[in-house]
Simulated assay, not measured.
Amino acid sequence: MNSKEPRVLLIEPDETVRAQITNFLTDKNFDVICSLDPDAILFDDDLKADPIGLILISDEYDRDLLSASSLVLGASRKLPQQIPTVVMTEIDSRKSPLEVVVHNWFHTIKKPCDLDILYSVTCAAVNQFNHVRALLNEIETRSSAIGLITSGTFEFQTVEEARNLTTMLSLACPGADGIVIGLNELLQNAVEHGNLEIGYNLKTELLETGRLYDEIQNRIKLEPFNTRYVRVSYTRNDDEIVFIVEDEGKGFNWRKYLTIDDERIRSSHGRGIAMAKMMVFSELTYNDKGNRVTARIAL
């Protein structure tokens, strides 16, 4: 990674483990900062140009220090950006206690860490941070006349077009910096999982091998994928904003993705719909087939 890429903050009390992880990730071209005082790093003005893009924290970290930091839910001091947090645990159970108290929990890794898994999860988390940061930056720098429109219909094919439409439509909503993440999830899913038929297991494999982008670019050139479009309708009245997103794919079993089950709680993807339902939209409903979703935002 070059100096403009986000850094990894490692919070690990064990010196031996800390050195092992630091050396491994450094060899993989990640810039690792080690500290047992996370806020001193996260709120360092000198790091704004090279922000922290991932927090790796051991659940052996002192609970009193953790409770006093900005890492916990409900902290009075807000994290500078939506930084994903990966928990490392020696607890031989399904969940570490830290998963339910830290901001933006992304994944849990069993210690001693399998280095291949550590690398895959680190890449996925940093990629997510870059993606969210780009969306939020676009919201900050763009303006749109869409707020003056009460209804509209849009079509697109690519992930890039989905992102552009997401930022434009989000600017019509209150709290655009929160809406943009949930809306992008729906539009991107319509392309990847809907029209391009990249299923959950295949996406897991592509993420782990770093081939997702290439697979998307290849599929969109092939039949029948190259003739498919995603259609988005937008309506606004005094009470609510309604988005309807429909793709031309085969649909999917959307019911299992409205909550986060044990299979996906350890995964680097597959939680976006549930998170959007819980945190972004006042209502999220699918048709039976699963190729059309209606998202409502109460005003």
Score class of each variant (00 low, 15 high):
N127H: 11
F106R: 03
L148K: 10
N104T: 03
A125T: 01
S120E: 13
N137Q: 12
L115D: 00
R163Y: 06
C113D: 05
N137D: 12
P112T: 02
C113Q: 08
T122E: 01
L115C: 00
T141H: 14
R133G: 04
N130D: 10
C123L: 08
L148W: 08
I109A: 00
A134H: 11
N130G: 09
E155V: 08
N127Q: 13
V100P: 00
N164G: 11
P112M: 04
R133K: 14
R163S: 13
V132C: 04
V100L: 14
L98Q: 03
I117W: 03
F129C: 08
A134K: 13
E161W: 07
E99K: 07
F129T: 07
E161S: 09
P97T: 07
K110M: 10
T158L: 09
D114S: 05
S143E: 14
V126I: 15
A134N: 13
E155D: 15
A124V: 03
S120F: 02
V121M: 03
F154T: 05
W105I: 00
F156I: 07
H107F: 04
C113W: 04
L98E: 05
L98R: 03
K111D: 00
K111W: 01
S151L: 02
Y119H: 12
V159C: 09
N127D: 15
G147T: 02
I117A: 03
S144R: 03
V126K: 03
D116W: 00
I117R: 04
L115G: 02
F129K: 02
R163K: 14
L135S: 08
L148R: 10
H107C: 15
I117L: 09
Q157L: 06
L136G: 01
I139E: 05
R133E: 13
